[in-house]
Each structure stands twice: as structure tokens, then as C-alpha cells.
Design a protein around this nucleic acid. Structure first.
Lengths: 262, 262
DNA sequence: TGACACCGATGTGTGCTGACATCAAAACTC
DNA sequence: GAGTTTTGATGTCAGCACACATCGGTGTCA
């Protein structure tokens, strides 16, 4: 016989979520808090109470707590007993986390974030090209050569949409071909900067003839296993890219992270 | 009148936590699962049930769920309704997260992780030095010069402990002085590789005379605002560092992250 | 009277649990 | 085979017990 199920609580239908987002409550909570912290709406040192967040987000403690735990792992907040949830200074944030990058790109820090990413690219891609020349599998080298030729075609024809697609794949293949998983992980961010550059009209009407040649140089050097040539050609691409983009962030102030005392 | 508070449950005293660790249950759970996943004990595609983890870790659902949420944000697992918690392939992990790096360094992936970090350093530090020459605040430039001189002293005197401390601070200052928060965030990882190099006896008895000179070159070039000289000197340091360390990871296989189709 | 150490009250994160809600895989029906 | 129902896992909620840092009061001593 089935014991009668005791119904302790009515289990009200819970408002049926008027804002019928497809995403989960957890996702929404992380997103809400992350954007507000990174965007500066919640300044460094600001203390929140879990209970207050429940009211603000209209969710239960579980959701708030799980979201706070995630933000904690990103370095955005810390929890202190008897005090609350405190917003940490920006230099404690994990600047490599995709979420943090996305939130910065969406807010005031957009310029500074793009500069950081561009500088990171300018550092990494030449070394990635050099490593790819030594390590990349044969099929990848050949695809790279093919793409560099297709880029020239698309560039000469003025087909910028196709050029962008090829450009993205080109740089993704170089990063992947390095055999370094940290480099490969930057593919997403590089893609973001490349698309952003065209979307925001920072791309020249036609790709520079030089840039097309440099891409082919990189591809052929990787194919030939010539690391230093690949590196130098990639460095040239990066220098030109930085030069093109620099005006858009020249006014952004630089922040100097304090070095922990020994 | 106060309504009588209905006591739904006795709330038993909860076993008083025999394993009286100083760390929180949440921390322990994240650590336990993270090390086992990154260490390979839980292979890609392995599916766990939350309830099973409760039993295994002897913790409640809240702790398991919060830990899983954090691991999810690191890209180590995904949760699927009606299926469970699935371990994701390594190329989905966030290779820049300090936790992931630490877990890899602690397990079989140690060699590959050190290579990745060293290659990242070799890419970033020259560019960081170049940027520092243009951006670093005056006080930082001067400290850098002072440290490079002290490094020479310590090196000539054979005081390797002091040399290591100075070396760490030197590279931290260069990264910080770049004014790029992503570069600055690598300070921790660079410190790890530097200490690891000496701890594991991969460091020469006396620092190379050339290396000492290169450090001074970097410092003076940054102080003088000469970016390209700083970059080239830093690149020389990196080349030598890589050459010293390479034997320790030459047998590690490289992994090539698949590039998403367009 | 004033400075300081102690100690209890208070409040907030941490952790545990039962009860649903939801949704997709799997089983079932036609 | 297509559509429907069942099932079983995560998702969410709410209440309680506990640990512990902080604050403020109290007592002691100078």
C-alpha cells in the first residue's frame, strides 16, 4: 500500500516566469551580476547580501549561491562571513575567462579589452606560426596554403565577407597548428576581434596588398617548415593590425597591476 | 500572538564532520573532482550522477551542485538533464584558469603544461618588455634597473636563492609594467615555472653571464624607453630559457585542437 | 575616570534536507 | 514508423541548524 504523500507545502506555481528566457535561472543570475560588476555598476568593495540578491533577482537561495560560487571562481567577488558578498578590484578578475572578456567587451571597458586582446595576439601569433612550422600536421599546412591563396582571390575581387571568413579560419588554423592548447584557446577571442574590426568599420575597403602577401608568406613558410620566416611574416601582419586598430583605443587609460611584495 | 512555528524536521546534528579539514566542503569538492578529471581518473565522456557524488564525497546536494557549477564554468563538465554530469574533452577546458593549470601541473600533464606555459612566456615577455618601455611608470623602470644589478651581484656571488627571488620579481615587474592586464595576470604562472625550474634542478649552478647581461639590457632599455631593444633582449632570455627546459618535455605529445568548421 | 581585555549577542555565510518543477531520453502505443 | 506517455535525472524552492567574524557591553585594573 502506498503511504499517503504528505504535502508540506502548496508548491505554488511560481509565477510561471513572465520573462520567459530560454536560459536557466542560474545562467541569468551569473549574467546579471557579472555584467553589473564588470560594467562598473557595482563598484569595487561594494558589499551585497545574499538575501538582497534573492529579492533583486527573484530567485531562491540555491540559484544565488551557485551563481556567487561561479563569480567567486572568476575572481569577481569574495564571500565573507558576517559581512556579505564583496566585489573584488578589477585586477583580481581572471582576464582570460571568456565570460569576463565578453562582459568587458559589452561595457565601458570595451576599448581596453580590445587593446589587451590585440596585444596578446601580436605576442602569440608570431610564436604560434613558428611552432606551427615545426609541429603542424601535413593536412593543416596544406589547408593553410589553400586559404592564403583564396584570401588573395577574395581580396582582389573585393569580396570582403568571404575574405573575413577566410581570415578567421586562417588565424584559427595557425593557432591550432602550434600544438599549444593555450594558443589554440585564443581562437575565440581572435575571431571576436576580427569580426569586430569589420563590423566597426575599422577594416580598409580592400585588404592591403602587403597583408595578402604576408598571409601567403606565413602559409608557405609553415608549409616549408621554416619557423623564423613564418614568425617574421606573422609579426608583420600583427604590426599592421595593431597600427590599424590603435586609434580606437588610444584614449583608454592603462592600468598597472600592483606586483605582490615578496 | 505568535503563530506556533511548525518544526518540519528534527535537524539532526550532522555528524560533526570527522574529517575536520580547514578548507570548506565546497573547496574540497571542487578540488577532488577537478584533480580527478584533469588527472585523467575520470575520462572524457564519463557520466556521473549528482546523487552518486553526494555519497562519494559524503556531502549534501548543495555542495555537490555548487562544485559542479564551478567545474562547469571551467569547461570541465556539462550537465545534461535526464543523463547526469558528463566530463568534457580536454580541449574544452579553460587552459588559462589557475585551477586547471594547477591540476595539470600536479598530474600527468605536468610536462605538457610546463611547455605550454614556457611557450606562452616566450611569446608574451618580449612584447611585454616592449610595451613596458613605452608605458611603465617611472618608479617601476628604476626598480627594474636596480633589480637587474642586484641579480648580477647575486649571480656572481652564487647566491641562487636570492637570485631566484630577484628573477621572479624582475619578470613580474616587466609583465606588470606592460600595462596589459592579461600579461600581468600571467605573473603567477611565470613565478610557478621559475620556481619549478630551480626546484627540479633544471637551473644551471651559476646563471649564465649572458643571461645576466640580457636582464640588464632589458631593464636599461625599458628605462630608456627603447622598446625594440627591450623586446630583442627579452626574446634572447626566452630563447635560452626554452632551450634549457625543452629536454624535460620533449617526449610529451602535442595535441591539436580541432578548428570549428565555419 | 579612563584604557583595555573579555564575553555574549547578533547577523550572515555554510551546509543539510524534503518537496516540487521541468524537461528530454526511453518506453510504449497505435 | 510516428506520436504519446512514462520515467528519471537536473533545476528550483524554502526552511532549518550551525560556524564564526564582528560589534558592543561589561568588568577589571591602573
Amino acid at each position: 500500500m502506498m503511504p499517503a504523500r504528505i504535502r508540506l507545502r502548496t508548491g505554488r506555481p511560481r509565477a510561471t516566469m513572465l520573462t520567459s528566457m530560454s536560459t536557466s535561472l542560474h545562467h541569468r543570475a551569473v549574467e546579471h551580476l557579472g555584467t553589473r560588476i564588470v560594467g562598473g555598476a557595482l563598484p569595487t568593495g561594494h558589499v551585497m547580501l545574499a538575501e538582497h540578491l534573492e529579492d533583486e533577482l527573484k530567485v531562491s537561495r540555491s540559484v544565488v549561491r551557485e551563481a556567487v560560487r561561479v563569480l567567486q571562481s572568476l575572481g569577481l567577488v569574495e564571500t565573507i562571513k558576517r559581512v556579505g558578498i564583496r566585489v573584488l578590484p578589477a585586477h583580481r578578475w581572471n582576464p582570460f575567462d571568456p565570460l569576463v572578456i565578453r562582459w568587458r567587451l559589452a561595457g565601458d571597458g570595451r576599448g581596453a579589452q580590445l587593446r589587451s586582446l590585440a596585444e596578446l595576439r601580436s605576442a602569440v601569433e608570431p610564436v604560434a606560426a613558428e611552432l606551427a612550422a615545426g609541429n603542424a600536421p601535413e593536412s593543416l599546412r596544406q589547408e593553410l596554403v589553400g586559404i592564403s591563396l583564396a584570401m588573395k582571390e577574395a581580396g582582389d575581387a573585393g569580396d570582403m565577407a568571404r575574405f573575413l571568413d577566410l581570415d578567421i579560419r586562417f588565424h584559427a588554423l595557425v593557432l591550432s597548428g602550434s600544438g599549444n592548447e593555450m594558443f589554440a584557446n585564443l581562437i575565440g577571442q581572435v575571431t571576436e576581434t576580427l569580426t569586430g574590426r569589420t563590423v566597426h568599420g575599422l577594416m580598409p575597403e580592400h585588404p592591403q596588398k602587403q597583408a595578402l602577401q604576408w598571409h601567403m608568406d606565413v602559409a608557405h613558410a609553415i608549409d616549408a617548415g621554416d619557423g623564423s620566416v613564418a614568425r617574421d611574416a606573422a609579426a608583420k601582419i600583427m604590426r599592421q593590425t595593431i597600427a590599424e586598430l590603435a586609434p580606437s583605443w588610444n584614449d583608454q587609460p592603462r592600468v598597472f597591476v600592483p606586483v605582490a611584495k615578496n
